[in-house]
Design a protein around this nucleic acid. Structure first.
Length: 196
DNA sequence: TAGAGGATTGAT
DNA sequence: TCAATCCTCTAC
């Protein structure tokens, strides 16, 4: 069953980032389904410097962050990598959760082909890689997550509090003290989590 | 309109 | 440690 609008529109983006662990991200690209269990997330809010929408900065790129929770936000980073985010919070509040790693469950052969490998290991361990493995690009920006192109399933998997690790986010050293916020969440001992 | 830099990755 | 690579933002 797809996660509801009310889930995405909760006011606490950090709580949502934590609760997305264990859910299943599913993408339908040209009638080909692929997806996996979310094992790593990061929260972003307009309140902190790590976010594109810091201090309510609004541009063409990050406009979808201001939509109500339940939309996708995809953008290109370093000219190479597509990053997949889930917009959260109320209408006009710029908050989002970056999906950083998956455990592949659906369409694994398809992902191998996209990644040009036969290994099922680490094909989705990192935001740039999982987007490529699932076939996500910026044409999926601003999609409604209760539609039929990209959505998140409640897998029924429960991740206990003891198995969730909070740590500082990656790649945002420019954000000063906000780079230290423990807003990255991973499932303990999960081999699909990105880097180390 | 030009210049700088980035929520990364993989090879050296 | 560093280049790849191109879109986006900022300043002129």
């Amino acid at each position: 069953m797809k996660l509801s609008e009310s889930f995405y529109q909760q006011s606490d983006v950090v709580k949502i980032a934590r609760e997305l662990l264990g859910k299943e991200l599913v993408v339908n690209i040209r009638n080909k389904i692929s997806g996996g269990i979310i094992v790593e997330t990061e929260a972003y809010s307009w309140k902190e410097k790590g976010s594109h929408a810091y201090n309510n900065r609004k541009t063409d790129r990050n406009a979808v962050m201001y939509l109500p929770g339940g939309f996708s936000y995809v953008y290109l980073c370093y000219g190479i990598h597509n990053m997949f985010n889930v917009v959260t919070g109320a209408d006009g509040v710029a908050e989002a959760v970056l999906i950083r790693a998956l455990e592949p469950t659906t369409g694994i052969a398809l992902m191998h082909k996209r990644m040009n490998t036969d290994s099922d290991h680490r094909i989705t361990s990192g935001p740039g890689k999982l987007a490529k493995a699932l076939g996500i690009d910026r044409s999926l920006n601003g999609k409604y997550l209760l539609g039929d192109e990209v959505w998140i399933e409640d897998s029924g998997i429960k991740i206990g509090k003891k198995n969730i690790i909070a740590s500082k986010r990656i790649g945002i050293d420019y954000a000063g003290e906000d780079a230290l916020l423990p807003w990255r969440f991973t499932i303990k001992d999960n081999k699909w989590v990105s880097k180390v």
